[in-house]
């Protein structure tokens, strides 16, 4: 079941479309890595999904129900769909003069959460802040604030979490703690997580699906396996007779992808076996001038996709 479906989504500010004809599909149980450059429109999309920002065009369906129909995205306390989404977009909205517990209790009251005090204690424990519940938020570190922001997002017992740059400003230890917490929430409680981040190696360690946004449009959605396959590596081959070599390889490995670069180098990617390729070339009497394997960095891969998207618009 798809928990989030966006189609033809657009948002214009002052006549300029920051998101345009955007489509997105998030299935239940996904940890969805939402990747894009600064200003690509990630936060705006997330705000439109949770209803914080009204789309200029297009529609969002949550749990199969289009927003604006029935109780979908109703006000806190009434619309069941709204309660099923927990949001941490940009900085967490915290009241510095109140304690962590009081921040949670203020939201629990606003949402009409039954047995609010117990739920507040529970989410504080969940994010590892039970010992800091009585401390004023003013004195919290950035990591503690992010964790409290996550606790606020979890308060309504959501089925989906929208997290925008949750690793921003965190030190390596806090980043690891946050990542482990997100994975635990997804695995233990079955929460679907949409997470936007620039920290691609963190996403790489937990995302099950990816979406790449560039200039307000979705460039591509893919599974983690697809990303792994496409980043899995490539083979660079240069022979004395490149056109002949390319024809030989295309015939021998129809499942692999080939790209001829200027200078005669052939880049083989996808489903191939380097040793078999070497044997094929030797068997055909090709004089091999270069034979090397490249392992593509996930960062390079996504940057290439984002750059591709940039030229697309």
């Amino acid at each position: 079941m798809n928990v989030i479906e966006a189609r033809g989504l657009a948002k214009a500010y002052g006549g300029r479309r920051v998101v345009d004809d955007f489509a997105m599909t998030v299935a239940a149980g996904d940890i969805y890595g939402f990747v894009g450059k600064n200003g690509a429109g990630k936060s705006t999309v997330m705000k439109m999904i949770c209803g914080e920002v009204t789309p200029t065009a297009g529609e969002v369906a949550l749990f199969g129900v289009p927003t604006g129909v029935g109780p979908a995205q109703g006000a806190p306390g009434e619309g069941d769909q709204a309660r099923r989404i927990g949001v941490l977009i940009e900085q967490p909205g915290l009241l510095p003069n109140l304690t962590a517990y009081q921040n949670l209790q203020a939201k629990a009251l606003a949402w009409g959460i039954v047995d609010g005090p117990a739920r507040c204690e529970e989410v504080l424990r969940l994010v590892g802040l039970s010992g800091a519940g009585k401390q004023k938020v003013r004195g919290f570190s950035l990591g503690m604030r992010q964790r409290l922001g996550l606790a606020l997002a979890l308060l309504g017992n959501p089925d989906v979490l929208l997290l925008d740059e949750p690793f921003n400003g965190l030190d390596p230890e806090a980043t690891r703690a946050m990542r482990n917490l997100i994975v635990r929430l997804a695995q233990t409680f079955g929460i679907t997580v949409v997470i936007s981040s620039h920290v691609l190696d963190q996403l790489d360690r937990m995302a099950t699906r990816y979406g790449v946004i560039a200039n307000g449009r979705m460039v591509r959605e893919m599974s983690a396996e697809e990303v792994a396959a496409e980043c899995g590596g490539s083979l660079r081959v240069r022979t004395a007779d490149s056109p002949r070599a390319l024809a030989l390889l295309e015939e021998a490995y129809p499942a692999a992808a080939f790209r001829a670069e200027p200078g005669g180098t052939i880049v083989v990617s996808g489903d191939y076996d380097a040793e078999a390729v070497a044997r094929t070339l030797a068997g055909a009497g090709q004089v091999v001038l270069e034979f090397s394997q490249d392992h593509r960095d996930i960062e390079d891969y996504f940057v290439a996709l984002m750059e591709g998207g940039a030229t697309h618009v």
Binding site: Q73, G74, A75, L94, A110
Partner: peptide, 22 residues
């Protein structure tokens, strides 16, 4: 003003109907 300066309103408000109640 505190709701906006601290962004706490974002914890409470969802769509337009939510804003009416807010």
């Amino acid at each position: 003003a505190q709701d906006f300066t601290t962004r706490f309103a974002r914890n409470l408000v969802m769509d337009r109907r939510g804003r009416v109640r807010y």
